[in-house]
Design a binder for these strands. Structure first.
Length: 922
RNA sequence: AGGACUAUAGCUCAGUUGGUUAGAGCGCUACCUUGACAUGGUAGAGGUCCCCAGUUCGAAUCUGGGUAGUCCUACCA
């Protein structure tokens, strides 16, 4: 084995091996465990959020697979309607071709080509992370099977009246020319103006002042509203306004939606271009005057001078024209929430169109109940509130999109506008007995991407057929997802699945946090702070990183800033840390639901951990290869204290890992593994094994016992660690396992270690604690007194009891080696001791003679610090015990514990004082 | 406006049902190339647990109020 761990050398090799051998496919009995991957965009590429999420799912999958479950990780990708269509359109644009020129058929052909070309990227990257889904079952939301499920669901919901077509105000994206759902609109505060206009009263002098942030919409006003109880305007209710620029007269109406205290208390009402106005328009039977085209330019409903104008140009012109008429009262600065499309970034228009909707209110009821009754549980729990809040006030879901890429809506229209919904034109004709002469036209729209995603848990398993997989794996075990798609995806999956399967899609929803950069900023291309998980695995030099981060940036200034920040943060580029280190970093950061700041320092630490593991393996192999390791259970072996101790600690670690995985605390699981492997196995057990193996006097049984423990414990913790660090554990296991009498083609399918209570050895734990106490005591004196490590010492033990004496007898070899001692002398009570620095282990005093070694002042300083510490503790304990209320009311065992503490502190203090005296007298 | 979350060492974070000497990693300081590992070893320094009040024998932990920050939902023209 190499001296340092080289991840690149082993990762692809093992991954290819695993996949080729079919290890990822379900195998096992009735005990099913299943996770559905949140399907990434088929043409997308891996970001840190994916990395985090896949890594968590893979640990769960590998864990359950090893634990003997029939484990399926269903993988697949999403067609991502808008996102994918936009990418392809942009590509075509660059070639000087428009989608419209190409035509629908040819365009869709192009998208499939693009999918074929770039669709492998994300799945290749998933493989680099070591993810172990069953690739043989990979699905795509536009596969024939899944498309069939989509159609089936649409038709059925239509028949049940849960899907309907309606004309109403939608969020219209004028750049993409499609309706989008409420969820796809992001509103952010932007600076704007509040214009105040004078609207002249019809048939008399005077005017009302109305305020608006969108002057151009006044061309579509159909009323002015005031509050019904507003005394200022009582006399005007029912009268008319002469709407400027248009020559139309509009009524003054009363509606308690109006806030009397805002502005003048008069509101212009534009029912066709504002959601609130729309509702009011319906209440009052106002005309809905649509003044826009699909592009958000002004249409023929407006006076000629404005027709064909772009909406923001029209805004300026309306303001200027009103000003010229003396009707502009004033303009105020105003910050307002501007709704923008999450994909296009342009301002969204409320726009009157005909669209398809899902009656979400009806479907939400059972979905709410499923969470209320605990059939589905969110982890962490608090996300259930978010879910409830949204579900209880859910709006109907607009599912039609004016796009070409997606599942086309299975609805046909005849010339009189009748709607026929069915699987195909032929099916529709047959069902409705339509004459072949009658012209039918299929709906041009496609379904919202999330419509097909909502069926994911059952459509991927073969629904609507009644498949074996459905029976075996549905409902699935857990959904691992980000909070950002609870509404988009999780809620809709629950609704659809309950409706069509009469069962929940999953029992648990594990909601993880967002991966942010080291400063806590969201990672985004435009901020230039994106980290690519693959770069963390393979490394990237600075120039490439800068180029990558600034590529495609339109603003040179921004690119400059990004470059500067990147050069500052990564002056050496990014080192190749390997997949295992990256994965372990994700686990260590995955505490309950909170966002994580990705700190490069962490991954470096875990790279070092990999190296530690690697070298521990080298040590074990060095000592065990070609040696008698007592692999047979019948072999004659003798387990020493250290062996019994590490075996005992291993059990505790196994129990802790099982417990923490069950509660999705991957941070705690990773910490327990790190602690055990580094601080116990490497730092203490390997060190203790050295004297054991080198001791010429030791029996063959004892040495065999040490070798067996070295190899068996390592073999076990490699399996324990495998779900978290799949590659390094496989590589080492292949070398180590045969020495433990195990041989297999992969660690992946080996049983997961389970804690054995019988192997917990509290006596051994206590003995090792004692041993560590003595060694650390001596090392501390060495450290603080600057005694060179090479210098061997003689120490004296005083005031010990029989137990101490016995422990000394059994562990003298360990003490000598680990504390670098020449000799250890046991002093009988009262015996004279040389002047020495002292460490306390319980009541036992460990004396390091000072002659020629120890600086008097340094030792006095050290003792003073010790005394200070003990006195502080003593004060606290005495305070408690002197409080009668504490004695009275605290539980007896707590009081007893404090009393014990008091006693040992007092004892320690006495000894420290004596020691101070002795030193002072020197 | 409503709601959720967060505040603990220089930094990133743990801290189960109230009882610890408040922990880890990174960073920092000193010493050390000892036959697995300098991507290492040994030792050490470093904390007003955001603030105020309350409950309690006892609060980082529970309650109320405040401050600061993050996010979600809704939205006033």
């Amino acid at each position: 084995m190499e001296k340092t761990f080289q991840p690149a050398a082993i990762e692809t090799h093992w991954y290819e091996q695993w996949e080729r051998q079919g290890y990822f496919a379900p195998q096992g009995g009735d005990n099913a465990y299943c996770i559905m991957i949140p399907p990434p965009n088929v043409t997308g590429s891996l970001h840190m959020g994916h990395g985090f999420q896949q890594t968590i799912m893979d640990a769960l999958i590998r864990y359950h697979r090893m634990a003997g479950h029939n484990t399926l990780w269903q993988v697949g990708t999403d067609h991502a309607g808008i996102a994918t269509q936009m990418v392809v359109e942009r590509k075509l644009d660059a070639e000087g071709v428009s989608r419209q020129e190409l035509g629908r058929e040819a365009f869709i052909e192009k998208v499939w080509e693009w999918k074929a070309e770039s669709g492998g990227t994300i799945t290749r990257q998933l493989r680099r992370l070591g993810a172990s889904p069953d690739w043989s079952r990979e699905r795509f939301t536009m596969d024939p099977g899944l498309s069939h499920a989509v159609q089936e669901v649409f038709i059925e919901l239509y028949r049940e009246g849960l899907i309907y077509r309606g004309q109403r105000l939608v969020n219209w994206d004028p750049a993409l020319h499609t309706a989008i759902s409420d969820l796809e609109v992001v509103s952010e505060e932007e600076k704007g103006s509040l214009w105040h206009f004078r609207y002249p009263l019809a048939g008399s002098e005077g005017h009302l002042v109305v305020a608006t942030t969108r002057p151009e919409t006044m061309l579509g006003d159909s009323a002015v509203a005031v509050h019904p109880e507003d005394e200022r305007y009582q006399h005007l209710i029912g009268r008319f306004i002469e709407l400027p620029l248009t020559g139309r007269e509009i009524p003054i109406i009363a509606d308690d939606y109006v806030d009397r205290d805002f502005g003048t208390g008069c509101v212009k009402i534009t029912p066709a271009h504002d959601f609130n106005d729309y509702d009011m328009g319906k209440r009052h039977g106002l005309p809905m005057i649509n003044i826009l085209t699909d592009d958000a330019t002004l249409n023929d409903e407006v006076p000629e001078a404005y027709r064909g104008m772009e909406r923001f140009d029209a805004r300026s012109k309306v303001v200027a024209d009103l000003d010229a008429l003396g009707l502009l009262d004033r303009v105020e600065d105003h910050t307002l929430k501007v709704p923008r499309g999450d994909r296009s970034g342009v301002v969204i228009e409320p726009y009157l169109t005909r669209q398809w909707y899902v009656d979400a209110r009806a479907m939400a009821k059972p979905a709410i109940a499923a969470v209320e009754t605990g059939s589905i549980e969110f982890v962490p729990r608090q996300w259930e509130n978010t879910y409830f809040a949204w579900m209880r006030d859910i709006q109907d879901w607009c599912i039609s999109r004016q796009l070409w890429w997606g599942h086309r809506i299975p609805a046909w229209y005849d010339e009189s506008g009748n709607i026929y919904v069915g699987a195909s034109e032929a099916a529709v004709r047959q069902e409705h007995g339509l004459d072949s002469e009658l012209a039918l036209r299929q709906d041009d729209d496609v379904l919202d991407t999330w419509f097909s995603s909502a069926l994911w848990t059952f459509s991927t398993l073969g629904w609507p057929e009644d498949t074996e997989e459905l029976r075996a794996f549905h409902p699935t075990s857990v959904l691992v997802t980000g909070f950002d798609i609870i509404f988009f995806w999780v809620a809709r999956m629950i609704m659809m699945t309950l409706h069509f399967r009469k069962e929940v899609p999953f029992h648990k929803v594990y909601v993880h946090g967002l991966v942010r950069d080291a400063e806590g900023q969201k990672m985004s291309k435009s901020k230039g702070n994106v980290l690519d998980p693959i770069d963390l695995i393979d490394g990237i030099d600075l120039e490439d990183l800068v180029a990558k981060r600034t590529s495609g940036m339109m603003q040179p200034k921004l690119a400059q800033r990004v470059e500067k920040a990147t050069r500052k943060q990564f002056p050496e580029g990014i080192a190749a840390y390997g997949t295992d280190a990256l994965r372990f970093t994700f686990y260590s950061l995955a505490s309950t639901g909170r966002d994580i700041k990705f700190d490069i320092g962490r991954i470096e630490g875990y790279r070092n951990f990999c190296n530690k593991i690697w070298n521990a393996a080298r040590y074990v192999l060095m000592n065990c290869e070609g040696e008698d390791c007592g692999t047979g259970d019948e072999d004659d072996v003798e387990l020493g204290l250290a062996d019994r101790w590490i075996i005992s600690q291993l059990q505790s670690t196994e129990a802790e890992v099982a417990r923490t995985i069950a509660s999705y605390r991957f941070d705690l699981a990773s910490q327990a593994l790190y602690e055990f492997i580094w601080n116990q196995y490497c730092d203490w057990y390997l060190e203790l094994s050295k004297p054991a193996l080198q001791d010429e006097a030791a029996s063959p049984q004892a040495r065999r016992g040490t070798r067996r423990t070295l190899i068996r414990v390592m073999e076990t913790w490699l399996r324990l660690l495998h779900p978290f660090m799949p590659f390094i554990t496989e590589e080492i296991w292949q070398n180590v396992a045969p020495l433990a009498g195990k041989r297999a083609d992969t660690i992946m399918l080996q049983p997961y270690p389970v804690a054995d209570d019988k192997a917990v050895d509290n006596a051994a734990n206590a003995d090792i604690e004692w041993l560590k106490g003595v060694i650390v005591g001596i090392r501390t004196i060495r450290g603080e007194m600057n005694i060179p490590p090479a210098r061997t010492l003689t120490v004296y033990l005083r005031n010990g009891d029989n137990k101490d004496q016995q422990r000394l007898g059994e562990n003298a070899t360990f003490l000598k080696k680990l504390a670098r001692l020449e000799a250890i002398e046991w002093l009988e009570p009262g015996a004279e001791a040389p002047a020495a620095a002292t460490a306390l282990v319980g009541a036992l005093e460990v004396l390091v003679p000072m002659a020629g070694l120890i600086d008097k002042k340094a030792e006095l300083d050290r003792l003073a610090r010790e005394v200070q510490k003990v006195e502080n503790d003593l004060k606290r304990v005495e305070g408690k015990l002197n409080n009668p209320a504490f004695i009275d009311r605290a539980p007896a065992e707590v009081v007893a514990k404090e009393r014990e503490k008091l006693q040992s502190l007092q004892q320690a203090l006495t000894k420290l004082h004596e020691q101070q005296e002795t030193i002072r007298r020197l």
